[in-house]
Simulated assay, not measured.
Amino acid sequence: MSAVPAVTALIAEDEAPQRRALHEQLQQAWPELDIVAVCEDGVSALEAVEAQRPAVAFLDIRMPGVSGLDVARAVVERGGLVVFTTAYDDYAVRAFEAGAADYLLKPVQPARLEQAVARVRGRLDERRARTGGPDLRALIDDLESRLRPQGERLIRWITASAGDSVRMIGIGEVLFFQAQEKYVRVVTADGEGVIRTPLKELLAGLDPDEFWQVHRGTVVRVQAIDRVSKNELGRHSLSLKGHAERLPVSGAFLHRFRGM
């Protein structure tokens, strides 16, 4: 009789002490679990999801930049289960009990983690026989709408350096942001400037319905995207409406363009 393959898992948590603690607790609560990636940010987690296709992902919801919700979409699309970790006993998270395998409040308590592990293992055992079930992608969209920046938390203006002057750029003018060493380019239809604000901080103040991260160093206005193409080497890039520059799209973010 052939051995049952090990269940693979990913951990994504931006706080190092909590990342280490969850890793150690999982090793104790589920010794046979094969933890294939331990990630400190959402971009690394997306790349690991693409490369490893874990069966289960333990995701911090509120990571800066690419959130746990973005990573969850990629996990679910590849048939995996999700366990969210959060410091907030938010009622919105409770809605995920029907779709996600579970959620854990931080700091994670060993007894509560054991309950989550039991639930995940039960879901994995049932998955072959189960047909239908809750639409986790719809639940992710709902939770994102509840947690996204609102009102004064949304960026409305960018003050960017342009040569010897300073440009005031309304957020509605921006085509894309692109990280370049110490600066971030802010590109509009009629020019560009640079800012020192890191891309991760920018993402926290951008409406996720209007701006998508498509590469570790690039965030694009969705309405500005014309098409996504693949070259002979299998690399993807996108073109913008009325703008000649092409932008790279990493494999970790291709799930955004399914059905476009």
Rank of each mutant, 00 (worst) to 15 (best):
D60A: 02
R121M: 11
V83N: 02
E15C: 10
F257S: 00
P198K: 06
A6F: 08
Q27L: 13
K106G: 06
G132Y: 15
A95D: 15
G217C: 08
V7S: 01
G205A: 13
A6T: 12
L206F: 11
L143N: 02
G133T: 14
G251S: 15
V187T: 13
S145H: 14
T8Q: 02
D190C: 03
V43L: 02
E50W: 07
P248N: 08
I195D: 00
V222D: 00
L247F: 06
G170I: 01
I171A: 12
I158D: 03
M1P: 14
L59H: 08
V194E: 02
K106P: 00
L240M: 10
G259I: 02
G234S: 11
A118K: 15
E13S: 06
A244Y: 14
I140Y: 00
G133N: 09
I171Y: 05
A29G: 05
L105W: 11
A189L: 12
A87F: 12
Y88L: 12
D89S: 14
I61Q: 05
Q213V: 15
S237E: 07
A37R: 00
V49K: 06
S2D: 15
Q223E: 14
S2A: 15
R235C: 09
E15W: 07
R78M: 06
L203R: 04
G79I: 03
M260R: 15
A138T: 12
E114H: 09
E97H: 12
D90N: 15
P64G: 06
A51E: 15
F176W: 15
A48P: 03
A3W: 12
V7W: 02
M168V: 13
L254P: 08
S239W: 07
L247V: 01
F176E: 05
A224F: 02
G217N: 10
G99W: 11
I225P: 03
E181D: 13
Y91T: 13
L240K: 01
G163L: 10
L175V: 00
A21M: 14
R128I: 08
E152I: 06
K106F: 05
M63T: 05
P134G: 11
T131P: 00
L46T: 08
L147K: 02
D209I: 01
E32G: 09
G251Q: 09
K182W: 01
R185V: 05
G193A: 07
L233H: 13
L33A: 11
V75N: 03
A45L: 03
G259D: 12
E13A: 03
D207H: 10
G191T: 04
T86H: 12
A162E: 05
